Amino acid sequence: MRQLWTGELGIREALNLIDRLPRHSHLAAAMADDDDLADLIDEDAPAPPPPLTEWSADHGLLTIIAERLGDLLAATAQANSGKKVPSPRPLPRPETALKRKVKRRREYKRELIRDRLAKAKAAGRPTMSDLAADPMHALTAPRRRDGR
């Protein structure tokens, strides 16, 4: 801290050092326990994935074990009850640039399809969802070669 006040360390460098502190640091613990900061955080926002810098092979293996245990618990609950038990959600993993790129590409394609369907609907052309909802379509649709 002395270097920050004497000018040996710039504010930007100090903030970079603070940002690189691990999640189990005293600062992270103090921020997690701060009521005023908690009021500013959106409760509905999903939790960020764990940082890649803190992820190790042990974390990966423990995550796999925890997910398999969740699958076993869900299967046991399903077998012992008459109701459908939802599958457990996968545990968070670090997000790489490649995963973000694939996610952006998927979102782009989804938006493109949504826009095309909206244009088709605005032009009065039927969409596949309109045809699937039409009971007469099943009678007039051509049959596939496999007999379905």
Rank of each mutant, 00 (worst) to 15 (best):
P48Q: 07
V85F: 00
R100W: 06
K101Y: 03
A132I: 03
L91R: 00
R110F: 11
D58F: 09
R148G: 10
D39P: 09
R145K: 15
R89H: 02
N16P: 08
T53E: 07
S129D: 02
A29H: 13
K101I: 06
A47W: 10
R105M: 11
I64H: 02
D19F: 10
R68E: 07
D33T: 05
L37N: 09
I65E: 08
V102R: 08
E54I: 00
A66H: 00
M136K: 14
M128F: 08
I65V: 13
H59W: 03
A57W: 09
A45P: 03
K119H: 12
A32S: 04
S56C: 06
T76D: 12
G60V: 06
R145Y: 15
R20N: 07
L9F: 10
L27T: 12
S56W: 05
D146G: 04
R12N: 14
E8Y: 15
Q78G: 00
P86K: 04
T140F: 11
Q78C: 00
R104D: 11
P86R: 02
P50F: 00
K99V: 10
R100F: 06
E111G: 12
K103H: 12
P46N: 10
D19M: 10
P126R: 02
G82R: 08
N80C: 02
R116K: 09
R89A: 00
H26S: 11
R116F: 07
L69G: 06
S81G: 03
D71R: 05
D19T: 12
R143Y: 07
L112C: 13
L139M: 11
R106T: 06
E54T: 01
A38W: 01
T96G: 12
R114P: 00
L9I: 15
K99A: 14
K119F: 12
L91T: 00
A66Q: 01
A97Y: 06
H59Q: 02
D36G: 05
M128E: 03
R148C: 09
G10I: 14
V85T: 06
G70W: 00
R20V: 03
K119Q: 14
T96H: 11
A57V: 13
A57E: 14
G82P: 07
A123T: 04
L62Y: 01
G10E: 15
A79Q: 13
A97L: 10
L15P: 10
P86W: 00
R143G: 08
A45G: 05
A29C: 10
D39R: 04
A47P: 01
P126M: 01
G10T: 15
E8G: 15
N80Q: 03
R110T: 15
T76A: 12
P51W: 04
M128N: 11
K99W: 02
L131V: 04
D42V: 10
